[in-house]
Amino acid sequence: MNNIKTIAWHTLICWIRNKVYIGFIAASFLLIAFAFICANITGLFQERVFVDSSIFFIELISIITAVFICSTTVIKDIQSKEIYYILSRPISKFQFLTGRFLGLTICVIALHLLITALFTLITSLYGFELTQKMKLYFFLVISLKIILVCSFSFVFSTYSTSFFPALILSFTLFFIFEFSESMNYWLTFYSQTAVFMKPVYNFLFLIMPNLVYYDIFYMFDINKFASLSSYTGFLALYTFIYSILFLIISLISFNKRSL
């Protein structure tokens, strides 16, 4: 556990000082400022415009950061040969990967909380009211979604040999998971696919993570959950199970890799 903590600390410090990460922070602040300007320009429904566009921007920048950082870190370690410096110490590959994953996830969640803090400050300064669902969404649901996105992006970091394919594959997987419900619906009801393929699609969409669960507003619109506590409990467990699964896949892929 000590080694995992040390590697997580090492990862966190390295990324916090990285120019790319600082660039993401600057971009997120600019986007919140942009949302604020847009809200002021509209005149009417200022609160609605600001909150809705902030929801979009905060999630967008958090996901982009998660995919970018998590799908490139181990590749960067291998390409720069920094991995030799770390793995020649008494650290197992499991400890290295888990530490890296934790450090990266904390790093992205820290960025998310920083933007959310700025957003909350602006809403409180201007007296905008945030509902309980919105607070939960900003402070917990997006964080859980970040953990899941980090975990599947991390798989490609341990598998791919260069940045570009890892980024492309991670974003592709993100879009598949994000729109899995619509894709399943389209494939099983509207497409011309063979009948025997439909159960296959159903099974695939059943086992793959469905990011629709992280849309708190939609989940309550369709009355999927009775209360906020049952929803958050379900979501935490859902995220935990899939993240562990992706971490195991990362470990298998990394163990097979020649360094």
């Binding site: 090492h10 410090i13 390295c14 000082r17 720069s80 040969k81 920094e82 030799y84 410096y85």
Partner: peptide, 8 residues
């Protein structure tokens, strides 16, 4: 070629 963590 020694490759230490450049950020530290």
């Amino acid at each position: 070629k020694v490759n230490l963590t450049p950020e530290l």
